[in-house]
């Protein structure tokens, strides 16, 4: 049986470092198998978060040889084993211990997004009619397993730490799923432009590259949302309409809030919650 060297980050918020482990490897193994083997045989207290081991729950996110990945879906055959394989926790989130990070910020962000609000049912029995094509468009976003690898790799969070004024790719996908839901009637565009920080995203597509579900985050979620925000707030015809409108109307259910100048933002003016 072949051997491989794994260099795993161990420690907590106070500090830590890499520890090397030599492991026996066999056909078809994934990185999470190696971590479990180490846990069972060499370091009982090696902390790792995992559940399904099938790429469906999104718990075992980590950085393998520097790449954000799910440990359960990364086969050893896809890694160069002639040198040590490094496994580190996601860097964008505060460390709990070893490979486990505190991702609770994501759960708080979700609470701030306007919930699903369906239109009145289509049929007398309280049900709706939807076309499969309209459902299909949103299913891509609903495949998201909340592994937060897109959040981990997004430079607005990773380098600039703008956790307070930017919700990140995961929640643009979530918002897109709601905005494009065939039944939803709420409007989240003002929230995206303001507290959602959509303007910070400069579509480098890093999030799309790391998504284990293959969701085209930038092309199918973020860019359409940006277009909707632009249409809503920066369309010159609409702007004129707003200026010459006799007096402000109470906002309709799906209406646009008053136009505001784009606030100036600098990355340095904010601090991260960590």
């Amino acid at each position: 049986m072949a051997q491989a060297m794994f260099r795993i980050w161990r420690g907590d918020a106070r500090g830590g470092g890499f520890q090397d482990f030599t492991v026996q490897i066999s056909d078809g193994m994934v990185v999470l198998d190696v971590v479990h083997q180490i846990q069972a045989e060499q370091a009982n207290d090696l902390a790792v978060r995992w559940n399904c081991k099938a790429g469906k729950c999104g718990s075992c996110s980590a950085e393998i040889n520097g790449h954000p990945k799910l440990m359960c879906m990364t086969r050893l055959s896809s890694l160069p084993l002639d040198r040590p394989v490094t496994v580190e926790p996601m860097r964008t989130f505060p460390l709990v211990r070893d490979l486990v990070t505190d991702v609770s910020w994501n759960y708080e962000v979700k609470k701030r997004i306007k919930p699903f609000q369906p239109r009145t049912p289509d049929a007398a029995d309280g049900t709706w009619r939807m076309d499969q094509r309209d459902v299909d468009r949103v299913q891509e976003f609903r495949k998201c397993i909340e592994c937060f690898l897109c959040q981990d790799v997004c430079h607005v969070l990773r380098e600039h730490q703008l956790h307070r004024e930017y919700i990140g790719p995961r929640f643009y996908v979530h918002t897109a799923a709601l905005e494009m839901h065939p039944l939803d009637v709420a409007n989240r565009l003002a929230d995206l432009r303001g507290p959602g920080g959509l303007g910070y995203c400069n579509i480098t597509k890093c999030c799309t590259k790391v998504c284990p579900e293959g969701i085209k985050i930038t092309d199918n979620a973020i860019i359409p949302l940006k277009e909707r925000v632009v249409d809503e707030f920066y369309d010159p015809v609409r702007r004129l309409f707003r200026i010459f409108r006799p007096k402000p109307q109470p906002p309709p259910a799906k209406g646009a809030p008053e136009a505001e100048p784009e606030p100036t933002r600098t990355a340095a003016s904010s601090s991260a919650p960590r």
Binding site: F116, P118, P121, G126, T127, W128, R129, M130, D131, Q132, V135, V138, Q139, R142, L178, H181, P182, L183, D184
Partner: peptide, 18 residues
């Protein structure tokens, strides 16, 4: 049906039902 009212999107029949 209640799940659908809460946002779940099931696959559809040709006439648009679950």
């Amino acid at each position: 049906r209640e799940l659908e009212a809460w946002g779940a999107l099931f696959d559809r029949t040709p006439d648009g039902r679950i």
